[in-house]
Design a protein around this nucleic acid. Structure first.
Length: 590
DNA sequence: GCCGTTTTCGGCCCGACTGTTTTCAGTCG
C-alpha cells in the first residue's frame, strides 16, 4: 500500500467515527485525521519505516495506531478498522472524495435514499436531485441541491480535491490576479499564500491575501475579475472564484495593521501553524489569523501584527522563510536563532544545462537559439559562467568516428566563442549524455575528450527495477568525465512518477566521488524533488540548479529550481553554480 | 488516540462562510 492509500484509510476511519458519534469520538477523529495528514506528507514509504521499526517517529502515530499499521503490513488488513468501517455503507466513502461533501452530508444522503452501490452513487444522486428529492429533505434546500449537482459536475471534470497544477503555471496565474488587484486603489499590498507561497512543486487552489482599509471594495473588485467563470462565495472578508480556466482562486482581505498575522496564518503549512500555536499556548497566548490574544483572558485586546517578522519575533523566534514552513524542524531552529541562510536566485552565477541549436544531430530534441544568443541571455542575467549541454549525437545514426568529429568541430566553435567573450563570461563545453540501459555512456572516450565534463541522464528503459536502475546510474556516473546527474528521478509531474533509485547509495557515491546532482527547473520536472534535496544536503552531496533550457527565454525558469532547493533547505555551500568561477573550475577538474 | 521546558493525566488550533435555520450544523483551510 502506498502512503496516500494508507492516509486515505485512516481518514476514512476518522470519517466513520464522525458519523457514528462525533461527540463521543471527538478526539479519536482528530487523532486519526492528524495521523492521516502526517502519512500523506511523509516522503519516505511507510512500509520502509515499518521495516526499520520507526513508525512512531511520525508525529501523530502513537502506540495504538502503530499497532494497527503493523497489523496492516503483516496481514493486509486491520480488524479494528474493518469493524468501524463496516458500520458505514461504502457509497459514503465515494462521496467523501467530492468537494463539498463531508461525512455527515454523505451519510445522510446515502442512508436517506438507501444507496448501495459505491460505483453508481454519484449517478444515482444526480437522478434523485433531478427529481427535486434532495431539496425537500430536512436540512437541505433548493440551493444546496443545486450546489450538490454543481459539485458532481466539477468532480466529473476531474477537479477532485487532489487535482493540482505545476508551480510555474500557478505562479503565472497568481501574478496576473495580483496585478489585477493592484489596479484597485484600495489594495495596499497583495501576496500569494498557501502552498504557492511555500513554493511547493504542485499547487491545488491559488490563495491570495490583500491588505486594505476597505475590504468590501476589494472583494467586489476581485469578484469582477474579467476571466471569472463564477463566484463560489463572497463574504465580508473572503471570496472565492472559479476562473474560465477552471481554477479556484481564494482571496482574503485584512486591514494593513493586521496583515502580518493573516499572511502567516494562510501561508501555512497546517502542520507548521499547529506547531506554532502549541508554542504560543505554552507561552500563554492564543494565536489566530487576526493576531495574538492572552489565553487566560479571552476578552483581552488582540495584538495585531503588520508584518510576519513582528509576529515570529513576538513568539521568540526568527522569521522563517515560507519554503521551510512544513514543521520539519524549522521552528526549533528559529527558536534557537539558528536557521540556515537558504540559497537565493541572486546567488546563482550560471546555468549548466543549456541546449543550443548547434547541430550535433542528437537523438533527442535540440534547442532553438544559437549558443551566441544564449550567452547574451546569460549576460543579461548577470551570470559569470555557463555550460552548453546538448544531447549527444544519436548513436544509431553515427559511427563512433563521426560522433567524435562532430564534437571536435563543436569544441573548436566553443573555443572561438571563448575568445569572443574573453574576460566577459566563462564557457564550459559539456554535453548531456545518455546512460544506456547497460550503464555505459552513449559517448566513447574518443568523443568525451572534447568535453570539459558531461552531464549524464536516463532517457530510455524507464521501467527497470530499483536495483538494476541504481546499478545503471552508478555505472554511468562512475566515468571520470561524468560529473552531474541530470533530472535524477525522471519524473514528469502529472504524467509519470519517475523510476526508483536507492538514494542512500546514489548520494553516498556522489559525496565520496565528487559527483553532483542536478535540480532541474523545468516546470514538469522540478527534479530532484525537495524532500530528496534535503536528504542530499544532509549527506553533503553537491548540487547544481539548472534550467534544461531549449530556448534562451526558458533560462528565466531558474527561480523555480531555486524554490525546490530552498524547500530542501539548500544553502550557497550546497549549490555549485553559486560558487566563484575558479572554485567551480577546480571542482570540475577534480 | 496522542502527547509532555508548568502535565504520564487531562488537555487537545481557530475561525469564515453558506444554507437552512431563528441559534446552528457542516465543511473547509
Amino acid at each position: 500500500m502506498t502512503n496516500s492509500e494508507i492516509a486515505k484509510l485512516l481518514s476514512s476511519v476518522a470519517s466513520a467515527y464522525a458519523i457514528i458519534d462525533d461527540k463521543k469520538h471527538r478526539f479519536q477523529i482528530l487523532a486519526y485525521q492528524k495521523a492521516s495528514d502526517a502519512i500523506e506528507h511523509e516522503s519516505k514509504e511507510l512500509k520502509e519505516l515499518y521495516k526499520e521499526r520507526r513508525l512512531e517517529e511520525l508525529p501523530g502515530i502513537g502506540s495504538s495506531i502503530k499497532s494497527h499499521l503493523e497489523e496492516l503490513f503483516t496481514t493486509g488488513k486491520v480488524a479494528h478498522f474493518d469493524q468501524v468501517l463496516d458500520k458505514i455503507p461504502s457509497p459514503v466513502f465515494t462521496l467523501l472524495d467530492v468537494p463539498g461533501f463531508g461525512p455527515k452530508k454523505a451519510y445522510k444522503l446515502v442512508t436517506e435514499f438507501n444507496l448501495k452501490n459505491p460505483e453508481t452513487v454519484i449517478k444515482d444522486l444526480v437522478e434523485i436531485a433531478n427529481k427535486n428529492k434532495i431539496a425537500t429533505l430536512q436540512g437541505f434546500g433548493e440551493k444546496s441541491q443545486s450546489d450538490i449537482l454543481q459539485s458532481f459536475k466539477e468532480y466529473g471534470l476531474g477537479k477532485t480535491k487532489t487535482a493540482r497544477m505545476v508551480l510555474p503555471y500557478a505562479n503565472d496565474l497568481a501574478t496576473k490576479i495580483i496585478d489585477y488587484l493592484y489596479a484597485s486603489k484600495d489594495v495596499k499590498a497583495a501576496s500569494t499564500l498557501g502552498s504557492l507561497r511555500r513554493k511547493k512543486s504542485t499547487v491545488g487552489d491559488i490563495d491570495i491575501a490583500a491588505a486594505s482599509k476597505n475590504p468590501k471594495a476589494v472583494l467586489d473588485h476581485f469578484a469582477s475579475y474579467p476571466h471569472t467563470d463564477r463566484v463560489i462565495e463572497k463574504g465580508t472578508r473572503t471570496a472565492s472564484i472559479i476562473t474560465s480556466s477552471n481554477k479556484q482562486i481564494d482571496l482574503m482581505v485584512e486591514d494593513p495593521e493586521g496583515f502580518g498575522a493573516l499572511l502567516q496564518h494562510f501561508t501555512g503549512s497546517k502542520e507548521h501553524n499547529v506547531r506554532l500555536r502549541e508554542i504560543a499556548l505554552s507561552k500563554g497566548y492564543s494565536l489566530s489569523d487576526y493576531g495574538i490574544k492572552k489565553k487566560s483572558d479571552p476578552n483581552s485586546k488582540i495584538k495585531l501584527f503588520k508584518t510576519e517578522e513582528e509576529l515570529y519575533k513576538f513568539l521568540g523566534m526568527q522569521w522563517i522563510p515560507p519554503e521551510m514552513r512544513e514543521n520539519a524542524g524549522e521552528i526549533e531552529l528559529a527558536l534557537k536563532n539558528n536557521l540556515p541562510r537558504l540559497i537565493e536566485l541572486k546567488d546563482i552565477k550560471g546555468d549548466f544545462h543549456l541546449h543550443s541549436s548547434y547541430p550535433v544531430e542528437p537523438s533527442h530534441d535540440m534547442g532553438i537559439n544559437t549558443m551566441d544568443d544564449m550567452i547574451k541571455k546569460a549576460l543579461s542575467l548577470n551570470y559569470k559562467y555557463l555550460g552548453f549541454s546538448e544531447h549527444n549525437p544519436s548513436i544509431s545514426k553515427h559511427t563512433e568516428q563521426q560522433t567524435a568529429s562532430v564534437l571536435e568541430k563543436r569544441n573548436k566553435y566553443i573555443t572561438q566563442l571563448r575568445e569572443k567573450y574573453k574576460n566577459i563570461i566563462h564557457i564550459f563545453s559539456l554535453m548531456e549524455t545518455d546512460i544506456l540501459p547497460n550503464g555505459n555512456l552513449a559517448l566513447k572516450d574518443k568523443s568525451l575528450k572534447f568535453l570539459d565534463a558531461t552531464i549524464v541522464s536516463v532517457h530510455s528503459s524507464f521501467n527497470m527495477n530499483r536495483n538494476d536502475m541504481t546499478k545503471r546510474v552508478l555505472k554511468g556516473l562512475s566515468h571520470p568525465k561524468a560529473k552531474i546527474l541530470a533530472h535524477p528521478t525522471g519524473r514528469l509531474i502529472n504524467k509519470r512518477p519517475g523510476y526508483e533509485l536507492n538514494w542512500d547509495e546514489i548520494f553516498d557515491f556522489c559525496a565520496k566521488n565528487n559527483k553532483a546532482i542536478e535540480i532541474n527547473s523545468w516546470p514538469q520536472r522540478l527534479d530532484l524533488p525537495d524532500s530528496l534535496v534535503r536528504l542530499a544536503t544532509q549527506k553533503a552531496v553537491k548540487l547544481f540548479i539548472n534550467t534544461d533550457s531549449h530556448a534562451s527565454t526558458q533560462m528565466d525558469l531558474m527561480e523555480y529550481g531555486v524554490s525546490v532547493a530552498r524547500r530542501g533547505w539548500a544553502t550557497k555551500d550546497d549549490i555549485l553554480n553559486s560558487f566563484e568561477y575558479n572554485t567551480l573550475k577546480s571542482w570540475f577538474e577534480k
